[in-house]
């Protein structure tokens, strides 16, 4: 295309602002514009003239969660936390049904057996048995009892950092509108709160610890916050904190 043609340039600038260019043409024009002051002037001309049409857009107030997400991002410039939309992965939930877990386990087991059966027979040439006594000491978990004021519900949370596992058992039931809200469990570390996952409002459950999460040495502090359904959209607590309590690890 003869981009030097001023008439054509003017037209491209107008169409760029109007929005009729397809994506490659748009990108091409943007590159061109960075080198050509005259084109930038044309673009600004049309941006301001066509802005007269903006009055037809009716203002609408966005949800508070959008600001929370922006605010989080500008304070954590290296991390990009997109708003949780339908395409985002669902947050971890403590509420894993044992039946599902055991089904998955038996499927895996079955697959393992099937693989074994398809392997060629192994020829054992030499066997050697060495008996070594290894004392197995299970490290004790961090344990926290979480009991919100004015509620019958209590949670016992056990964190096994070595196993990368969190177990929760709930006494009673904590009433929230589960269509709209979720309870989120946090560990409050020196560098701020880190999500451990969603807390069940009743019953027991367990889930893996988030990848890469290190517990600070010594005792830890856990907290529960009330979040939009599915958990905080920002990765940090956005709702009221129900309680914070120590998680103690017996020496």
């Amino acid at each position: 295309m003869k981009y030097q043609n001023p008439k054509l340039q003017r037209m491209l600038a107008a169409e760029y602002v109007l929005g009729t260019l397809h994506s490659r043409a748009r990108a091409r024009f943007q590159r061109l514009m960075t080198h050509e002051a005259a084109l930038r002037r044309e673009v600004i001309y049309w941006e301001n003239r066509l802005a007269g049409l903006n009055g037809r857009f009716k203002p609408e107030t966005p949800r508070g969660v959008v600001w929370a997400s922006i605010n989080y991002q500008i304070n954590n410039t290296n991390k990009v936390v997109p708003l949780r939309t339908a395409s985002a992965p669902p947050p971890r939930t403590l509420w894993r049904n044992w039946a599902v877990v055991s089904t998955a386990a038996s499927v895996l087991l079955g697959f393992g057996l099937w693989q074994q059966m398809n392997l060629p027979p192994q020829i054992i040439t030499k066997t050697e048995t060495v008996r070594v006594e290894v004392p197995v000491v299970e490290p004790l978990p961090y344990v926290a009892m979480l009991h919100p004021e004015k509620s019958e519900a209590k949670w016992k949370v056990s964190i096994y950092p070595e196993k990368g596992l969190i177990k929760v058992s709930t006494t009673g039931r904590y009433a929230i509108d589960e269509q709209a809200k979720s309870l989120e469990l946090w560990v409050v570390a020196k560098d701020g709160p880190h999500s451990l996952g969603l807390l069940p409002t009743q019953g027991d459950g367990e889930m893996p610890m988030p990848q890469g999460l290190q517990m600070d040495a010594g005792d830890a502090t856990l907290a529960i916050s009330l979040e939009p359904r599915g958990g905080s959209p920002t990765g940090k607590p956005t709702g009221p904190v129900l309680l914070a309590a120590p998680a103690v690890r017996p020496a």
């Binding site: 903006n54 037809r56 857009f57 009716k58 203002p59 609408e60 107030t61 966005p62 949800r63 969660v65 959008v66 600001w67 997400s69 922006i70 991002q73 500008i74 997109p82 708003l83 939309t85 339908a86």
Partner: peptide, 30 residues
């Protein structure tokens, strides 16, 4: 933000996209 959000809803037709776009816009403005 309400003016930008109104525009984004009108053009994108979906609230979730509009929220995502609004967030992108203000990060860019920042």
């Amino acid at each position: 933000s309400s003016h930008l959000f109104g525009l984004l809803i009108r053009m994108l037709k979906r609230r979730d996209w509009a929220e995502e776009a609004l967030q992108d816009c203000f990060i860019k403005v920042w």
